[in-house]
Design a protein around this nucleic acid. Structure first.
Length: 573
RNA sequence: GUCCGGUUCGUCUAGGGGUUAGGACACCGCCCUUUCACGGCGGCAACACGGGUUCAAAUCCCGUACCGGAUACCA
């Protein structure tokens, strides 16, 4: 039988990290087994469900890349079927009408109130002491006909006083083999006569879930461990309905750093999936992180592509103990789990450029930094001049051996190739996609801020730079400016075989030449190279960190380098 | 209270009778370097506790503690 699993969130908030992982595990299991991954929105609680929330959940799932294989099921659409099922059980004597007036909800936290009451009742509580349980069919019918409101409860067998119904196990307990937690057993006496239908006619969770899972042909239910006791109740409903239950796999929970509950209310944004999307996380990275929270392939490996996850995923690899989602509120450096941040950085600096580029494009677009010239222009979104080649060039040509001022073909500033090279250059120190528009802003715009700390550390500390840097600009202009442009002899191709549409500018403003000029300049001024380099870095990029300055000069380009070196803004603040 | 789970470095985890208890993140140090949050090398750091079983227990059994979940006419 083909596996059919479902992710069934209730739309009472955004998609949070625990649900996201449940969705992931369902998705992986479906793909691993060649089955179907379905989505059902459990919106039977009309008071709490919102459309906004449904939208948010769908958005989160979309971001993570979990598209359902069949149409989305909205549980509320099936209410009539649920009612029918309840009526059927009532007619068969497997359920009964409970005319007890509905309790008014307490003001205090519902959860606490329930806990309190449960504690007060202790172990004395008899789950079968409902007076309406044994009401005669005639009287029950009569009262109902008279318009008296009632809830419908499942008649869980009382093994002490009655023979077990034909729908329930004669052993006096419900039991199932959980794929994660092993054999689970529970005495009937521990399970109350649960309400199937509210007195206002609304079907309740356990009934709705069972009916829908049956209708959707669900073979494996993979859900949070907080449903463990629900499973026993649902088993009873399956039995009453005469349907063979699916297999179950319960997942350990994801806890807050204090090992307490990770709640939307207390922890807010940090548990919301859209937060990560908006914070510049790569979906693949976050998926990878999530997969390792409570699951392991049993090997010393951290980075898994989606295909690898699908291949290696198994329910046996899921843990029984809860995992802590580790983050420090009030610490911007550790605002979310360190490993998630690291994983994201790892993806950003190692993923194929072809996959990263569209993400960077979106980020730049969102910040009005994108220019159409960066687009691939009909060519594959690949580097025609890769950074690797640039490195090879660097490595193979000792500085001393190079001609005084050689010229090489480089992508024209602002072109697609330039964009690719630039992204590849700056991604090494980035953690999120946001960094491309914040720290990396100066590569894409003239309108960028100078980081105050960087200015203090690299500029104001050396007042001479106020004169020197414009002077360096003049030097660049004189030695690497005009001359090269005339020597251009851009050929028809480079050695990737692709037409050299962009790499036309063989001016001489590139690393080896720049280095010679800057070194000579520093020597002449009798200062350390670093003083010049870091001053220039701050003026050129606005920040104190980044790639090799030689590469930065070249990437920023001669024109903008001159402009920025001559800028006095840093000194006027 | 009752029922059900769980417990290996700070965190995610590997290991499930014999291991110097492994990896990753974080943290710290050193190196590289024109800066650095890149990279390289190294360090710190764990089997909850008590009993048993066994030649041998982190690993199996029992108990205790602690943590979590459930206990609703919520999902």
């Amino acid at each position: 039988m083909t596996v059919r699993v479902r992710f069934a969130p209730s739309p009472t908030g955004y998609l949070h990290i625990g649900s996201a992982r449940t969705a992931l595990f369902n998705y992986l299991y479906a793909r691993h087994t060649g089955g179907k991954f379905l989505l059902r929105i459990e919106d039977t609680d009309l008071a709490r469900s919102t459309e906004e929330s449904t939208r948010s959940i769908l958005e989160g799932l979309k971001w993570l890349g979990f598209a359902p294989d069949e149409e989305i099921v909205f549980q509320s659409n099936n209410a009539e079927k649920h009612r029918e099922a309840a009526r059927k059980l009532l007619a068969e004597g497997k359920a009964y009408r409970d005319f007890t007036p509905k309790e008014q909800p307490t003001d205090a936290s519902v959860k606490d109130a329930i806990k309190e009451r449960a504690r007060a009742q202790g172990s004395e509580k008899n789950m079968r002491d409902n007076p309406y349980r044994s009401l005669s069919t005639e009287e029950s019918d009569a009262r109902a006909a008279a318009g008296e409101p009632f809830a419908i409860r499942l008649k869980v067998p009382d093994v002490r006083t009655e023979s077990v119904g034909d729908w329930a196990s004669p052993s006096g307990k419900t039991s199932f083999e959980d794929a994660v937690y092993g054999l689970q057993e529970r005495d009937f006496s521990e399970t109350e006569d649960l309400v199937l239908l509210r007195s206002d006619g609304h079907p309740l969770y356990n009934l709705a879930v069972v009916c829908d899972d049956i209708e959707m042909g669900i073979t494996d239910v993979i859900r949070g461990q907080d449903h463990l006791t629900n499973t026993h109740k649902q088993l009873l409903i399956y039995a009453a309905l005469g349907v063979k239950p699916p297999r179950f796999a319960h997942l350990p929970l994801i806890m807050a750093p204090n090992k307490g509950k990770l709640s939307k209310r207390k922890h807010g944004e940090v548990v919301s999936m859209t937060t990560y999307r908006d914070a510049g996380f790569v979906a693949a990275a976050f998926r990878n992180f999530l997969a390792l929270l409570g699951w392991s392939a049993g090997e010393e490996k951290e980075i898994y592509s989606l295909d690898e996850l699908i291949k290696k995923f198994s329910l046996e690899g899921i843990h029984r103990s809860n995992a802590v989602f580790n983050f420090k509120e009030n610490d911007p450096r550790h605002w979310t789990d360190d490993k998630a941040i690291w994983m994201n950085a790892e993806y950003i600096r190692t993923m194929p450029l072809a996959e990263l580029l569209p993400l960077v494009k979106n980020e730049l677009k969102a910040n009005k930094l994108w220019r159409e010239e960066y687009a691939p222009d009909g060519r594959a979104l690949m580097t025609s001049i890769s950074s690797t080649k640039a490195q090879e060039f660097e490595a193979s040509t000792e500085i001393g051996e190079r001609p005084e001022a050689i010229a090489i073909d480089r992508p024209r500033h602002g072109s697609h190739d330039w964009f690719v090279n630039t992204v590849d250059l700056i991604r090494a120190r980035f953690f999120t996609l946001k960094d491309f528009s914040s720290q990396g802003r100066a590569y894409f715009s003239e309108d960028f801020d100078l980081d105050a700390a960087a200015v203090a550390k690299n500029l104001t500390k050396f007042p001479e730079l106020r004169e020197w840097l414009p002077e360096l600009a003049a030097r660049f202009e004189a030695e690497l400016g005009e001359l090269g442009a005339q020597e251009s002899d851009a050929g028809g191709s480079n050695d990737t075989g692709l037409p050299l549409t962009d790499a036309c500018c063989s001016d001489r403003f590139f690393e080896a030449n720049i280095e010679a000029v800057v070194k000579a300049f520093a020597e002449e001024k009798g200062t350390k190279l670093g003083v010049i380099m870091n001053g220039a870095r701050t003026l050129l990029t606005g920040v104190a960190v980044g790639p090799s300055m030689l590469a930065v000069f070249e990437t920023i380009g001669l024109e903008r380098t001159l402009m920025r070196l001559r800028s006095q803004v840093a000194w006027n603040g």
